[in-house]
Design a protein around this nucleic acid. Sequence first.
RNA 1: GACCCGCUAGCUCAGUCGGUAGAGCAUUUGACUUUUAAUCAAAGGGUCAGGCGUUCAAGUCGCCUGCGGGUCACCA
Length: 499
Amino acid sequence: MENRLTEQEIVRREKAQELAQKGLDPFGSRFDRTHNTDTFKADFSQYTKDELHEMSQPPLVKVAGRIMTKRVKGKAGFAHIQDQYGRIQIYVRQDLVGDDAYEIFDKGDLGDIVGVEGHPMITNTGELSIKVVNYTHLVKALRPLPDKFHGLVDVEERYRRRYVDLIMNEDSKKTLILRSKIISSMRRYLDNLGYLEVETPVLHPILGGANARPFVTHHNTLDMPFYLRIAPELYLKRLIVGGLDCVYEIGRLFRNEGMDPTHNPEFTTIELYLAYSDLAGMMDLCENVIINIAEETLGKTLIQFGEKEINLAKGWRRAHMVDLIFEETGINFFEIHDFETAKQLALDHHLKVEPHLYGFGHIVNLFFEHYCEEKIIQPTFVYGHPIEVSPLTKKDPKDPRFTQRFELFIDTREYANAYTELNDPIDQLERFENQLKEKALGNDEANEMDIDFVESLEYGMPPTGGIGIGIDRLVMLLTNSASIRDVLLFPHMKNRGKL
RNA sequence: GACCCGCUAGCUCAGUCGGUAGAGCAUUUGACUUUUAAUCAAAGGGUCAGGCGUUCAAGUCGCCUGCGGGUCACCA
């Protein structure tokens, strides 16, 4: 049933039994610390070696952590113990801790968790350390840690055993802690502006709010199928109808689609709605919130991302999709008004026109995706999406072929998607009907009809601006991570075959 | 889904032209009371991802399978 134990695992199990025979719990209990490695350094790094040495009543501290290095030299030894904040060196002398405790230290393994009580000191080589007077074994590690110098390198192992990755690799820990700080910074910023954080259902009876293939599940008592949500949009807008004028939700979305360095089947977004605002309001908000996060968590807005330098400083470019296409191809879609002409242009440019691309706007979108996306490096709000690809967006009153929508692009990738929300229930009903038409033509990602949502709009939804921001990608950008898996604590992996 | 790359000791990696499987860290034993990738001496540890084939002989060559990484396609 179990894999055969390695020599090292057998030795460690034996050591655990030896501890038990001495009356010590190999997997011990509570240890009340006075300091962590960070507060210890903060409290004592101001002193010199001599000042610490000559204190008549030196402070007594208690710190706990995992043994990461160990250098025993006969009747004394050094080790580094590690907690969430870092490492601290401990100095253990037989004459200070006693023979029994010293033997336990001597037989301790890398990976074991210990608690120490002692005095701050500085070694001859100048390292702030703890001179231990009480040494407490807390937890035996039955498996050895990876190479103390190289850490855990194997990418697959780092994702599958994230706990080992977190123990061994400072960079992974930093990235994942920064993720937490980014999200709390975003939340704090919006809360200070008076936004209300809400939670809407993850189980959706109707597919809507985005175009994506869903996960399908089933509820036993109700005996009905549910989708895991692909977007919270339609629920949040019902809240706007209900009079909650500024709301946001940070949460997980699920899309049953391909996986690659920027796509995970479950991912985190924020969606936000502000009554009486519009597209321009969302641009300002988006720019401000991201800049604020960068300043709060990184202390700068000029950041390195892979080979490129990204400037997040205020004043992001705002460009109409049609203008960007003109820049790249010389084609002015403002002057083209019929589908056949547009389609012919696409065919002339060797673009593949799928059967469900039946409208002028589909062709515009096709040109943008093919010619423009990959050219955008610095933060750019691309606005004016065609109506055909924006089923929930208000039309541009000046040119109803386009909508009041923008996407934020940075380094060729989409980071945010925002609308002046469609609040005309009659128009919304037509859009849903068009989506049904697409579904019939083979687009299995088209929205389903949500009559209750249409009815909610019939009660009147204020003019509203809404935005969604992909948080995983934002974290990737701010942590200079190449893969979404580096910013997820536990990325999904295929089950391993039998070992 | 297609193509490319990877998988050798607990970890990090070598392994030549196909000819008895190697190192460092870790482990065990011994020495060592300010070391820090501690040092020194000795020892143990392997289903070379799994399978099939070619061959006198396969970690090495070929094919299949699994898992991972990357690129492309699909997909917002």
